[in-house]
Design a protein around this nucleic acid. Sequence first.
DNA 1: GTCTATAAAGCGATAGAC
DNA 2: GTCTATCGCTTTATAGAC
Lengths: 192, 192
Amino acid sequence: MLGALGEVFRAHGYEGASLALITEATGLGKGSLYHAFPGGKEQMAEEVLASIDAWFVREIYEPLRAAADPRQGIAEMFRGVDTYFHSGRRVCLIGVVALGSARDLFAERVKTYFVAWVDALAAALRKFGYAQAEARHLAEQVVLEIQGALVLARAVNDPKLFTRALERSQERLLEKQDGGVKQRRRPHIANR
Amino acid sequence: MLGALGEVFRAHGYEGASLALITEATGLGKGSLYHAFPGGKEQMAEEVLASIDAWFVREIYEPLRAAADPRQGIAEMFRGVDTYFHSGRRVCLIGVVALGSARDLFAERVKTYFVAWVDALAAALRKFGYAQAEARHLAEQVVLEIQGALVLARAVNDPKLFTRALERSQERLLEKQDGGVKQRRRPHIANR
DNA sequence: GTCTATAAAGCGATAGAC
DNA sequence: GTCTATCGCTTTATAGAC
């Protein structure tokens, strides 16, 4: 249900997703929709964004933090991201909203989605051996690359560009075996 | 004129930019607008996109190709980009369109904008000393980073994130002095 | 809960006076 | 070239039958 709604917003943006398109995609009449979402379209989008946010927290951010081996946790993040975005054929609704004019309506949700992502990844990178400041910059960099790859892949209509970007991003992150020596903050005791 | 139009599309997206908003921003009534753009809103957006494309070709891509010193040309590209995007406070209209539902209408323009950018940057990087394949990948990577940085900076409402990303991107590109030795294809004879 | 009918407003676009 | 008035149509949202 929220899934079908999300696909409509993804395909047409917040303003472009008319109730006519929504009824068509969900198979529900306006009456049913307004029964489920008294707040109308804005509430629909809000709940869709919330469910996406929750999905990422549950499936990506928390495993990333909980992973005993940060290297493996990060690898799983990239796998999860590749799956979620259908290897570059699916766009990021949060990113779409962030760029659109509906951004102000959902500013808080959009912000926390990205902040939580950067935080979780930075935590994993610290565990991997990077110093705090570098971990933050790298995490920011990776999230930004994913968003940019989605934009560019869609713009030139080449999903493989996304997959390639993910691979390069992951390689660059993990190329230091078990953390860079000079950036290392403290010995990491997991996986032993 | 096209500039004012562009800002409306940037702020509200293609579908969100109503003729009411456009008349307000341009100070022209609908009559005047349809006199100038018989094709209506679609033509307005098309001409705006074309003018942006032309601006980048003239101010960014061509100087990048023409620069005798590729290092300097690339540095000027980053400066131009930072200026154009108001140091992260201004969004990329082509990227906005690429993600939105109007993408199909302007698919050709959107694609050539990015392809031309990657091509021009890859040419400069080859001149700088990178091998062809690596130059292409790096160019793609840089353009993608710029788009991603715009998305993320806007999402978390922190323009400095954009500036930081540009700096890191440029540093990584130019860290090999006068081109990486092993990637070098042939001696470069410019600047002598 | 789901539907149809309908309201009120906004949309892109056109016509025609000036 | 710029304006106002207006046309159809679509929009979000509501009302009320079932």
